[in-house]
Design a protein around this nucleic acid. Structure first.
Lengths: 174, 174
DNA sequence: GCCCCTATGTATAAGTC
DNA sequence: TGACTTATACATAGGGG
């Protein structure tokens, strides 16, 4: 993930995967160590790679064993309380990505709608089958940009309107 | 660690520590998840924070338990084989930092010595109690920069030498 | 494979609301 | 407390030796 973005999927290429594994394993251990040091919490990690026969543990044998023993001794309910399942984690991840996407889409939509608004202002007929929520959003955008719209209307009334077909990018003034 | 460099030590401020803990916990889990996905390895993590009564586990209860059981079943020797003790890890960290420091120092020393070399060239008397290894290093630097030195000598011989007291930064030409 | 480098993506400390 | 932003440090992919 860095000359290119991370593709969140299994790395097919054996050589690349191994390189990545080594780098990331190192990074993970470093992060664990930092968490432990900066926040004074116990962290135990076990990794079963394809590249080694034994598990790779951190920070050391005893800590890991103790952590697991403590873990085993807890009643199941307590144990689950702060558990993060892989599924949950993935869901959260997806949710976050979707939110970001929504955000970007929304921003883009505002831009589109601002242009749309301008088109309408320039005389374009709004088709009646337009999505109601879209119209509502459009109204919000108009409201938000009321000042600019009014100025444009005055200019237009005075015959100073843009003569080009391309609408002026009101967007830039948002 | 980012508006400022990470200070590799316990964060005294409770509020800051907690914020950091939450962010870093999240980051750690994300990294674990990525390692698992990209490289298809089993990763089990248990964290005992001060902020929760139960351990925080990832990716889930069963995986963690199985990982620990497997771990426990291994003969002690095997178990230790790929273990990274905290001490080792810290040592590695220190070693790396020291190497970096050495490198920076060496670079700096080369610069200093190049200037020293120039001073000598300009007529400075080298004191006899100069460290032998330092002299040797100096010799290396001179050798490395022989071409530049020769050019300077020619210029000097032609009366084109710098007249300022500050030696020209030969360093820049390295 | 390992180490180094560099460009770029990510993580995150502070700050703001 | 937490969500969001920003600036900066850190992690790491790709490429060379």
């Amino acid at each position: 993930m860095t000359r290119n973005k991370v593709n969140y999927a299994f790395i097919e290429d054996d050589s690349k995967r191994k390189i990545s594994y080594n780098k990331r394993l190192n990074g993970l251990l470093k992060k664990s160590d930092e968490l432990k040091t900066l926040c004074d919490v116990e962290v135990a990690t076990v990794i079963y790679g394809t590249y080694r026969n034994e598990p790779y543990t951190f920070p050391n044998n005893d800590v890991v064993r103790n952590a697991f023993i403590k873990f085993k001794e807890l009643p199941t309910l307590d144990r689950s309380k702060n558990m993060v399942t892989r599924e949950e984690f993935t869901m959260q991840r997806i949710k976050k990505l979707e939110e970001q996407l929504q955000k970007v889409r929304k921003e883009n939509r505002v831009k589109e709608m601002t242009n749309e608004m301008y088109e309408v202002f320039k005389g374009k007929t709004v088709s009646v089958d337009m999505n109601p929520s879209y119209l509502n959003d459009l109204r919000c955008v108009i409201k938000k940009n009321l000042k600019q719209v009014r100025e444009l209307m005055i200019k237009e009334a005075n015959g100073e309107g843009s003569t080009s077909n391309a609408p002026q990018p009101i967007v830039e003034q948002l």
